[in-house]
C-alpha cells in the first residue's frame, strides 16, 4: 500500500508543478496548495503508514499497548498545514492586490520591478 501512496504523492507533485508553471497568478496559487498537500503526504508516507491506530496512549497506561502510527511526521505536518494555509491566504491577498494595482493577473505583464527596457550600466567612472 505504501507504493500506491507514493504514486499518489507523485500525482500531487506533478499537478502542483504544472499549475505553478502557469502564468496566471490564481492558478499558481492553486498549484501551491496542491504542491503543499503533496509534500505533506510525502512526509507522512516517508514516516511509514499504520492503519487507524492514532498515536495516543490509552488512559491508565504508560506505553501504548501495540503498534501505533508514527507521531513525529504528524507533528511536523500539523504545523505545516496551518502555516501553509497562512501563506496561502497571504499570497491570495497579494495576488488580489497586484491584480488591482496592475490590472492583470498574468505574470508576463507584471514587470514593475524588472522592466523590459531596464537601463544599461553607465560606461564612465
Amino acid at each position: 500500500m505504501d507504493f500506491v501512496l507514493a504514486i499518489v504523492v507523485g500525482l500531487f507533485i506533478a499537478t502542483g508543478s504544472y499549475f505553478l508553471l502557469s502564468r496566471s497568478l490564481i492558478r499558481m496559487l492553486l498549484g501551491l496548495t496542491v504542491f503543499g498537500n503533496g509534500v505533506n503526504l510525502l512526509i507522512f508516507t516517508a514516516g511509514r503508514l499504520t492503519r487507524e491506530v492514532a498515536p495516543i496512549v490509552p488512559t491508565g497506561l504508560d506505553q501504548p499497548d501495540g503498534p501505533i502510527a508514527n507521531p513525529l511526521p504528524q507533528a511536523l505536518i500539523l504545523t505545516a498545514i496551518v502555516i501553509g494555509f497562512a501563506m496561502f491566504s497571504f499570497l491570495l491577498v497579494l495576488a488580489y492586490r497586484a491584480y488591482q494595482s496592475l490590472d492583470a493577473d498574468n505574470t508576463d505583464t507584471m514587470r514593475v520591478a524588472e522592466p523590459e527596457d531596464s537601463p544599461r550600466p553607465p560606461l564612465s567612472y
Binding site: 507514493a6 504514486i7 504523492v9 507523485g10 507533485i13 506533478a14 503533496g38
Partner: peptide, 18 residues
Amino acid sequence: TLAIVCGAGVSLLLMVVL
C-alpha cells in the same frame, strides 16, 4: 513534461525511501 518528471521523480524517491 517538467511536471511529470518532477512527480515521477518524487514518487521514485519515496519508493526508494520506503
